[in-house]
Design a protein around this nucleic acid. Structure first.
Lengths: 337, 337
DNA sequence: CATGGCTGCTTACACGTGCAAGCGTTACAC
DNA sequence: GTGTAACGCTTGCACGTGTAAGCAGCCATG
């Protein structure tokens, strides 16, 4: 980060006051429409004109320093390539937070270990932190609270002590898919796992869910197929699938499912006769392949709803942390299973 | 935005100073490892221990108020559903900016008209603004500069006066695709336009590019097919395509292309014999359909490169705004054209 | 022993803002 | 004519930080 001085300093409210021939307080009263401050109409106009002429813009840092609160909601997390579903969700959430008067700051992947991420977030004195990565510790939550953060939300599979929990029941995705395959009479199950390690936090729990379903049905072990989302890797996974004699595969999402389906077909394997496939996300594209892809449809809580939840939690920081399920699942059976 | 007072105020450097039995300046010297400030080793340890005990975290707003600069890079724009290509790009850019010592703030869709967006951005006193929506005006750029923003970047088809230009040559995407279809002997061209009005800023220029190619080849008018990314809409577009007797269609991107291709095939139209298709983005999924989808492959500048560019522009705000092409195109001919 | 420099720390100000309290003037009621 | 209230504006402090300048004490040098 470079630190050369600016060419010219931006106008402050003092400059506006000077130009309008009034005190700085008057400027503040006028520009903020403060209830208590009574200012005559012609003075108001002089102040507004002066502000416009100078191109005055208030200084958010100074304002929130004085006010003691920032109106920043920190969205911490990798903003990973987690598909259109979550992209749309963030988009919605961000718009809704804006409507509630908050500024959302995307913090990106968390630096460091232990408390470091929480410490870095706390520097911004956000009103709330929404953590979407599995890096939040109870100690981190405590640190945030002690530094004035009014609400901390964790968005993950399991709750974090002290934080409001937004549960994304990843295992249930696997369980729904696994139970479906088992109910259709499949017995040798496999699960496609993305090779990208950043997706492990999502794929691991889903795999566990399939295993749980298999265990309760009393079938054999569930195999894993690693896929790095290239055609070559797809062919390898398809070959391995045939070797292992799998007859039902749950794929991490529809994109991976489509790749595996094509690779299996290229190998002469009949889908769904020999191998049944289930994806996740219900992408439109999954309906374009033949056979049409079966999938686990997922609906997230609306951004507006979550924004309201966050606003309430900020309003009452003393309320005990709640738990909210973010995800609604439904199995959509098409032709691939 | 709710504004109840916090339960307890966070510790400040004054609290740390009191606990360590030193002055506040000493605390600052120790915690920032300031070169000029000379502090004895045992005092350093006392200060560090006190800071740890209180859970002290510096106040970013106060710090940047005092410093006069923020290290914030504002990424303004809708963060629209613009596909995996741009998602990955933002992700990279954000990480690279972090590495350069900046905090990236995603501002989301811009509020208001005229100068309002620029005014809202300026409140944060960002070191740089990167605007990815066509809402930046020369007056807005000027306002930002006058309020201390050291570098303004516009990311769009055409440059904006006063701002560094990151050109995304959308028309060229259409031109490349159109020229290809024309070279293959197609004469009745069509272009698929997403119904989502938020994508008009991208689809419009691409359409113009196709029209330019058609004009220079001296063919008839280029038709447009509106598509809202549902199967029903795909069927309608395919029917219209046949009615119009089109023999070559450029689709906004691969997803729309895949939908149209499937819809045409369901209608019994032979792709590419009767209608040739070209998409854009070179998605892996486009290779899974049969025939494999021809596409305009796009490569963006690396996030690291852009971050370096931004850093340099911040370091020297007086340098005249430069122009940089963000996009590299290449036509990938497969089987659908 | 006086001078000067170094060490280790403190005092004091500035950054830009919001708001409580104060203060002079006018208007009105008694 | 005097008390009182409302109006219209200003003075002054606080928010939490970084850093220039200053100030004792100490040692080395002359």
């Amino acid at each position: 980060m470079s630190n050369r001085p600016a060419a010219t300093t931006p106008p402050t409210s003092a400059d506006v006051a000077r130009l309008a021939g009034v005190s700085r307080a008057t400027v503040s009263f006028v520009l903020n429409d403060t209830a208590g401050g009574r200012v005559g109409e012609q003075t108001r106009q002089r102040v507004r004109a002066a502000a416009a002429e100078l191109g005055y813009v208030p200084h958010a840092a100074a304002r929130s320093l004085r006010a003691g609160r920032t109106g920043v909601v920190l969205l911490a997390g990798s903003a990973a390539p987690i598909g259109p579903l979550f992209s749309e969700f963030y988009r919605e959430l961000q718009g809704a937070l804006r409507r509630h008067g908050y500024t959302s700051v995307l913090y990106g992947p968390s630096p460091g270990e232990g408390d470091e991420p929480a410490r870095a977030w706390a520097e911004l004195r956000p009103a709330a932190v929404l953590c979407m990565e599995p890096v939040l510790t109870p100690a981190g939550v405590d640190l945030l609270h002690r530094s004035g953060t009014r609400a901390v939300f964790s968005m993950s599979t399991a709750p974090v002590a002290g934080a409001h929990a937004l549960i994304i029941d990843q295992p249930e995705v696997g369980t729904v898919a696994g139970a479906h395959l088992l109910a259709a009479g499949r017995r040798r199950l496999g699960v496609v796992i993305p090779a990208d390690p950043e997706l492990d936090q999502f794929s691991g729990p889903r795999l566990a869910g399939v295993r749980a379903a298999a265990a309760s049905a009393g079938t054999g072990p569930v195999e894993t197929l690693s896929l790095d989302y290239t055609e070559a890797s797809g062919a390898a996974a398809a070959a391995r699938c045939r070797e292992l004699g799998l007859d039902g595969v749950f794929c991490y999402n529809d994109e991976y499912a489509m790749l595996l389906q094509r690779s299996l077909q290229d190998l002469g394997v009949d889908v769904p006769r020999q191998v049944a496939l289930v994806g996740a996300d219900d992408l439109l594209l999954g309906r374009l392949l033949r056979p049409r892809l079966s999938t686990v449809g997922m609906t997230l809580l609306s951004g507006e709803t979550l924004a309201t939840l966050i606003d309430q939690a900020i309003a009452d920081p003393t309320a005990p942390p709640g738990t909210q399920n973010l995800l609604t699942l439904r199995l959509i059976t098409r032709d691939s299973s």
